[in-house]
């Protein structure tokens, strides 16, 4: 059995939107697509993320955070049960600066999943995935089933509360 993708979507929405003052909000990350072994995200241009005020170019650290999140969410679609996947390690190659005032998109995929480790890779681009501005490879922990007992119930309830609060 593989984890229900609708449950993963709710978990991702919860993580990105539930806590108004956390790092997801500071960055302004949006989840755009969730499929088995593949997740898409978007980071809108934001003056607070600039690394060089003269050029307006977004700091590489923000792209690192975007790709870490995108690879991590993708890893969670490869689990058996709804859960979190701590990052083991991550490598980012920067091919060029992000063009200012344009959103940055991230797409990540699970290319192999084993009993204990989920192997992912992803790219960040600004409209053409064939011309990435950064590429990432990240490995994530696949925790044992027992590690997330009652986690699904907790997530679904918190999600319903969050959606109810918005409505």
């Amino acid at each position: 059995m593989a984890v229900d993708l609708e449950d993963v979507r709710k978990l991702c929405e919860l993580m990105v939107h539930a806590n108004k003052e956390d790092h997801f909000h500071a960055l302004g990350i949006e989840v755009t697509d969730i499929a088995r072994h593949k997740v898409g995200m978007k980071l809108d241009y934001n003056e607070n993320l600039v690394g060089d005020p003269e050029t307006g170019v977004v700091h590489g650290g923000a792209i690192t955070a975007l790709l870490d999140t995108c690879c991590g969410f993708t890893a969670s679609t490869a689990l058996e049960h709804l859960g979190l996947t701590p990052t083991i390690d991550l490598r980012i190659d920067y091919m060029g600066p992000a063009e200012p005032h344009k959103p940055i998109y991230a797409v990540a995929e699970v290319y192999r999943s084993t009993r204990h480790v989920i192997f992912t890779r992803g790219v960040a681009h600004q409209g053409n995935p064939e011309r990435p501005i950064a590429q990432a490879v990240g490995n994530f922990v696949s925790m044992d089933g027992g590690a997330f007992d009652n986690f699904r119930e907790f997530v679904l309830e918190a999600y319903d509360q969050m959606v109810g609060r918005k409505a």
Partner: peptide, 22 residues
């Protein structure tokens, strides 16, 4: 607060730590 990724622990966002180290 704006560097938190997991509010239940609470823990730093791995990306915030990565960005800081970079």
């Amino acid at each position: 607060r704006t560097n938190i990724g997991n509010p239940t622990l609470p823990a730093l966002h791995g990306g915030a730590l990565g960005g800081f180290m970079e």
